[in-house]
Design a protein around this nucleic acid. Structure first.
Length: 118
DNA sequence: GTCTTGACGTTTA
DNA sequence: CTAAACGCCAAGA
């Protein structure tokens, strides 16, 4: 019955939350999937964040290039228009990327739970 | 309805 | 320190 609809709405809400948080990432900063997932209450479901990102592809309003894994590696670059697009966009914002990973990632790490102070 | 895959993260060997 | 397995939730085949 309404269960299916209810679930769909809930999922949509989760996706939108991911989009909003990603959109709130300041320029020159990066965050991790796990951080967003935890902020949304998903805890260890960091994969869902990546899944949501894949659905957000095609939207320039969502800086998916600012979202990297916990190691600061550009794991999602393969889903971009080009493999170098992600790195180029990061460098354009002042983020130094080397060997497909963000330099000083720890310093540039932007955690919504901390910055937004839940 | 079941199995596999997936832009991750943590834990154990 | 490195490598592999498990756990998480969702979607596609």
């Amino acid at each position: 019955m309404s269960q299916t609809i209810k679930l769909s709405e809930k999922n949509k809400d989760f996706f939108e939350h991911v989009y909003q948080v990603t959109r709130l990432i300041p320029e020159g900063r990066v965050t991790s999937y796990g951080a967003i997932a935890r902020y949304l209450g998903m805890g260890r479901a960091a994969r869902m964040v990546g899944w949501a990102m894949n659905a957000c592809m095609g939207r320039p309003d969502i800086p998916a290039h600012r979202v990297v894994n916990r190691l600061g590696m550009l794991t999602g670059k393969i889903h971009f228009e080009t493999l170098t697009k992600m790195q180029e966009q990061l460098e354009a914002e002042g983020i130094v990327v080397e060997n497909d990973k963000v330099v000083d990632f720890k310093k540039l790490n932007w955690d919504p739970t901390l910055e937004l102070e839940l």
